[in-house]
Design a protein around this nucleic acid. Structure first.
Lengths: 144, 144
DNA sequence: GATGAAAATGGTGATGT
DNA sequence: ACATCACCATTTTCATC
């Protein structure tokens, strides 16, 4: 993980389809050497996968909300329960007054309400506190 | 935006490097037609870009926190101020008691503290409430 | 590790239905 | 809007340094 690797990651985050020849030119390496670098980054798991960024509004997910989930029981291993709700994009165990923080995307606030209902059905969940997003300033990849 | 488009998006989210021939086979189209579909999805902005998913811990961003930011002034157009802090991965204007919610990734909690310090320097910011993530259940693309 | 070139593969565009 | 095909850029591998 030297500086060249970090540069490659930064470029690939912006456009993962750039030819190795161009990539190499940007970092001062041959296409072959660049290919080898990227291959190893994948192998080591630094690059988890190549994916596409989809506009949430275009696929009927225009409403974004963060929900703090309170619980009475230990919910540290109920990740699958949250994963079963497709509208939940992220779920984290947190330190603080609440237990779980989830990021939810729905098409309407009614559907958001329905997601809350389904979360209450999870064993141990005793409360939710939803925060609706009015405007997203930015969402970007982690800077290497 | 029919069902085929949604299928294509779902597959490409998992692996954006799948050949068009394979993609087409999965949805019952020729490689050429599939290529055309994907091209239009890009053109329409449904697909924003193809990118790589990087393991945060591997690039020294092992600490994840969500921070509620309180403010005394209107901060609805200070997105650039937050954007200037590279450790901030997301920033949203929210409804509720706080004004802004940001997602921060740092290598240490000391560095997290430093990010809070830099946020206080933003005009109008009057308080922060950080919630540190202990474990991430999952983070996944929005389901089409 | 990096290089450079050869071989395999998939992207791209024209044409026709 | 889709299928087929031909061409060319890119990926991928390998011998070499």
């Amino acid at each position: 993980m030297d500086d060249v690797d970090r540069q490659l990651l930064a470029i690939l985050q912006q456009d993962a389809l750039r030819p190795y020849a161009e990539l190499g030119q940007a970092v001062g390496l041959s296409a072959g050497a660049t290919h080898e670098r990227v291959r190893k980054l994948r192998e080591r798991g630094v690059i988890r996968r190549t994916t596409i960024e989809v506009d949430p509004a275009a696929i009927g997910r225009g409403v974004l909300a963060f929900v703090m989930v309170d619980s009475t029981k230990w919910v540290g291993d109920s990740g699958d329960q949250f994963s079963a709700i497709p509208e939940i994009q992220e779920a984290h165990v947190i330190a603080g007054s609440a237990s779980i923080l989830v990021k939810v995307r729905t098409s309407t606030t009614e559907q958001l309400q329905d997601v809350l209902r389904r979360m209450y059905a999870i064993e141990g969940v005793s409360g939710t506190q939803a925060t609706v997003v009015l405007e997203t300033f930015f969402e970007r990849p982690v800077a290497p």
